[in-house]
Nucleic acid binder design. Structure first.
Length: 656
RNA sequence: GGCGAGAUGGCUCAACUGGCUAGAGCGUCCGGUUCAUACCCGGGAGGUUGCGAGUUCAAGUCUCGCUCUCGCUACCA
């Protein structure tokens, strides 16, 4: 049997993922189920990424060991998977012992063959991002990725020779257009990283302990990405010593890595290069899916607008949630999720078109024929189109699935059900029921409907497995082989359908749902406030940042701050963030460049008296000389406010 | 600033290598129907496909310029 190995990214266990993260696993599950239905020997792996400094710190804050911490989160994540009815074959955790062992072996192997070498890393380190930055890369002395504080750090470290494999990778990408999907992502990788030339990647850390130790050099732990990415091979039995399992030999290379667009870089540059170094073939395809955004905004707990899978499932049920994320997600642009949209989709597609169709059909069978469904062969012209649509659906769905166009695929199934509703209108069963002479025709109509719904339910099984089963159960039928889904008339003659059809999707009242949503959001904000130690009485927000090491008075005394008056200010050309100010300090005028264009216009800067660090070493920014630094306060959102003296003070006054 | 993607009726999105009066769904309006979860079916209105040129027998689709949005990336004293 033709194998199909697909994976999702493994979830980082630093917190509970929201529905935006859950999209990926639902999509992967739909693909896995569909391939299985098509007869492929599917292996579907997902899991959790459990190492790193961030987790070490979160655990410390919670007063438990890192392992205890990740055990808890991994459990939550696995529960979410299960509640979404995810049919994974393997749930790997990077703290699993076989994984850790292999990562050590892989590291050693790469070191021994010279791809990894020992060097030293010096620079500023951002803990949450686990990234080193050079001074010049910093954003106002902060991490350019997340904007948080960085600490100076120097470590002995191991580096991977990326460039050694760059040409081969470029060649591979160029000759395999399907490798990176969608194409816009491929362009980004080529233009921003590969073509300008890769830098050697630091693949070890000494600044924290919660990682897989480098076994021949105990001060070091393996870089999280090298640790995480290799899950795709260790999970199926890869062995760096050449004793890989039969399963590995059968499954690798993976057919599809399904990941978020934010980590395309790791999967299409670092990962292939690691594999090349190991002498293993590259995965066939990496698909960087877009995000699901809450009404165009990012989800955040403080706004109380995070939508969790759990809440959605509670309100609408698993399959409705699955349907929604699959239906609403476009191919390469970000999708939108709002409560209104979910309710609308639920009512119109699931309750009205699908649920009601099943319900009315079964009701009629019971009403007219005591639930017995029978083909009488009294065919009419209108039947042909129904049958054509129904039997043609399978291949249409398959085609869309092949291209990973989830929304279109699920749309094809819905189109089948729409066609059934139309068929009822065309044949008017209630009219046929009035005349004894047309009863055979009525039987045929009911049979056609039942059979159509059966095929539709079969095609639905990848997307909405529970609903698919429920429908088939109500029709007293069973799942069919994929091959026969393009064939009409396999519903067994004389079958009795259920007497009392259960409502599949009860219509939701918008006001009622929104009331519950309000409650959920209020609870979320309350939880956020509790977690962040915000007292209810305190209206004002506060900002907490990592505390820097204590300094001596002498250290402080080295700095000189003075009041400066901005007498002229203009935008720095070719720059998004920079303003260039002429600042009067005493009788001197200095030129200072600041990254505050997004917060202050050049005009409003003029005339302000501001706090200036005057003895900072001059530097050139975007080609413009800057002799000092304007001091600003920054809130959690990154908004800046210049510091000005609280009473009128002359330009040049010392701040001490 | 560099690179890339996108801009289509009120909303969410389609339209393969340029080819018939630019399509769906939702919403809206009108009509039909009653088996069913106030549901279903049909029909109408609604788009100079961001703006301006050009190539072509033919352009949403190709070329150039402009505006705006987004992504990646650089700069961020």
């Amino acid at each position: 049997m033709d194998k199909y190995y697909l994976t999702t990214a493994i979830a980082y266990t630093s917190g509970t993922p929201h529905i935006g993260n859950s999209y990926e696993i639902v999509m992967a599950d739909a693909v896995a189920r569909f391939k299985r239905q098509q007869g492929r020997a599917v292996f579907f792996q997902t899991g959790t990424d459990e190492h790193g400094q961030k987790i070490e710190e979160k655990a410390a804050a919670a007063g438990i060991s890192p392992k205890e911490f990740v055990d808890g989160v991994a459990k939550t994540i696995q529960d979410i998977c299960d509640s979404l009815n995810i049919s994974y074959d393997k749930f790997i955790r990077t703290t699993d012992d076989y994984h850790e062992k292999q990562v050590q072996k892989i590291f050693k192997k790469l070191y021994e063959q010279g791809d990894i070498y020992k060097g030293a890393y010096e620079g500023m380190y951002c803990t949450p991002c686990e990234s080193f930055w050079t001074e010049s890369q910093l954003a106002e002395g902060k991490c350019p990725d997340c904007g948080r504080e960085v600490q100076p750090a120097k470590e002995e470290a191991y580096f991977f020779k990326m460039n050694k494999y760059a040409d081969r990778l470029i060649e591979h990408i160029n000759t395999h257009p399907e490798f990176i999907q969608p194409v816009s992502r491929k362009n980004e990788m080529m233009n921003n990283f590969l073509l300008p030339g890769l830098q050697d990647l630091c693949v070890s850390r000494t600044s924290f302990k919660w990682g897989i130790p480098v076994d021949f050099d105990n001060n070091h732990v393996v870089y999280v990405w090298l640790d995480a990415l290799t899950n795709y091979i260790t999970g199926v039995g890869y062995d760096a010593d050449g004793n890989s399992s039969e399963q590995y030999k059968k499954l690798w290379p993976a057919d599809l890595h399904l990941i978020g667009k934010d980590i395309v870089r790791f999967h299409t540059i670092y990962w292939p290069i690691f594999l090349m170094a190991l002498g293993e073939p590259l995965p066939k395809q990496v698909f960087g899916h877009p995000w699901l955004l809450q009404g165009g905004e990012k989800m955040s707990k403080s706004r109380g607008n995070v939508i969790y899978a759990e809440d959605l499932i509670g309100l609408f049920g698993v399959d409705a949630v699955r349907y929604f994320v699959l239906h609403e997600m476009p191919y390469d642009n970000d999708g939108t999720i709002t409560w209104d949209l979910v309710i609308e989709r639920f009512n119109s597609d699931l309750a009205n078109i699908l649920g009601n169709l099943v319900n009315r059909t079964i009701s009629m069978s019971n009403k007219y024929f005591g639930g017995i469904v029978e083909s009488t062969g009294v065919i009419e012209e209108v039947d042909a189109d129904l049958k054509a649509v129904v039997t043609g659906a399978r291949d249409k769905v398959a085609e869309k699935m092949e291209a990973l166009k989830m929304a279109d695929a699920v749309g094809e199934v819905l189109a089948l059900f729409r066609r059934c509703n139309k068929y009822i209108d065309e044949t008017e069963p209630w009219v046929l029921a009035k005349d004894e002479a047309t009863l055979p025709r009525l039987k045929e109509v009911m049979y056609n409907l039942t059979e159509s719904i059966c095929i539709g339910a079969n095609l639905l099984s990848s997307f909405m497995p529970e609903t698919s089963e429920k429908i088939l159960a109500q029709l007293n039928s069973e799942a069919r082989a994929f091959e026969s889904l393009a064939q009409f008339g396999l519903y067994e003659n004389g079958t009795r359908v259920t007497e009392k059809p259960e409502i599949l999707f009860a219509r939701k009242d918008t006001a009622e749902i929104m009331e519950k949503v309000e409650a959920i959001q209020a609870a979320q904000r309350a939880e956020y406030e509790r977690e962040n130690g915000i007292v209810e009485a305190e209206e004002e927000a506060v900002v907490d940042i990592p505390v820097k090491p204590e300094i001596s008075y002498e250290d402080f005394d080295k700095l000189q701050f003075r009041v400066g008056k901005i007498i002229k200010c203009e935008e720095v050309p070719k720059s998004k963030k920079l303003l260039c100010s002429q600042v009067k300090i005493g009788s001197e005028v200095r030129q200072i460049v600041s990254g505050i264009k997004q917060h202050y216009s050049a005009e409003e800067m003029v005339g302000k008296k501001v706090m200036v660090l005057t003895n900072l070493k001059p530097a050139t920014l975007a080609g413009v000389l800057s002799e000092g630094m304007l001091l600003c306060a920054e809130d959690a959102e990154g908004n800046l406010a210049l510091l000005t003296p609280e009473k009128e003070m002359p330009a040049g006054a010392e701040i001490c």
